[in-house]
């Protein structure tokens, strides 16, 4: 069964007098354990598509089946539950709570899931260990480098063991070297069974994925498997 199946999705924004068609008639399916890159120039609708896939936003038209359930029939509470349990977001600007330390940032989704304090702290520590930040647990975001912040964000995305990780330009605010480390981390997460959708406008970043969906002006231009995937060699735990 497909993990994600969208059909004839459109997203139209009303901006005063005119309408902006951020997405026009997009259909695609994604299976479990895929590593997909959504590629396209700025303003092509990548983020809009990702927000819809992540149940943060709802399409103006079309249907979305997630894990066999129709997302269009869900109310606000159900969507929040799906985001909490099934989806892990990673953003370009990290989006951590600035005044909370790494541990609290990572345990936050578990608080919303209703897990008790002891268990969630345990799990948050595990997730931070997975991204190589065991020694930065009590650091606040402003005490961490960009790459470390993104790792905290990835740990937060991982901590609920979601069905899918959605990353919107995760390397956009990082230097090349740090970006590569983060991409290595994604490759590793994919190899350990996670499903990943990566949004980027950089060809080089997209080539880490197994499949690239190219969009332009809110439409899918091409959808193909990558012949020569970039497999990062390094063990990212040593690079921080």
């Amino acid at each position: 069964m497909n993990l994600i199946s969208i059909e004839h999705i459109a997203k139209i924004y009303d901006v005063g007098s005119e309408e902006v068609h951020a997405l026009r008639d997009v259909s695609l399916t994604i299976e479990k354990n895929e590593y997909v890159a959504i590629m396209g120039p700025s303003g092509s609708g990548k983020s809009t598509l990702m927000n819809i896939l992540g149940c943060l936003d709802t399409p103006s038209k079309g249907s979305y089946i997630f894990n066999g359930i129709s997302v269009g029939d869900m109310d606000d509470n159900d969507l929040a539950k799906i985001r909490n349990k099934e989806i892990g977001f990673v953003f370009q600007t990290f989006n951590l709570l600035p005044r909370s330390d790494a541990l609290h940032n990572v345990e936050l989704p578990l608080i919303y899931a209703g897990m008790n304090s002891y268990e969630r702290k345990e799990r948050a520590r595990e997730a931070l260990a997975k991204v190589g930040l065991s020694d930065r647990v009590t650091h606040k975001p402003n005490e961490l480098s960009g790459g470390q912040r993104q790792r905290v964000a990835i740990a937060r995305a991982l901590v609920t063991s979601p069905s899918i990780i959605l990353a919107d330009e995760p390397t956009g605010n990082l230097d090349t070297k740090t970006g590569e480390d983060i991409m290595a981390l994604f490759s590793e997460l994919h190899s350990t069974g996670n499903t990943i959708i990566l949004v980027t406008h950089e060809e080089y970043i997209a080539e880490h994925a197994a499949r690239i969906i190219r969009i332009r002006d809110g439409m899918i231009e091409r959808d193909e498997y990558v012949e020569k995937r970039i497999i990062p060699s390094s063990n990212n735990h040593s690079l921080q």
Binding site: D76, N77, A80, R83, K85, F89, N95, L96, L108, P109
Partner: peptide
């Protein structure tokens, strides 16, 4: 926005 993205409900 961040809290909502990671699963906070309205009533939360």
């Amino acid at each position: 926005g961040i809290r909502k993205a990671i699963g906070a409900k309205r009533r939360t």
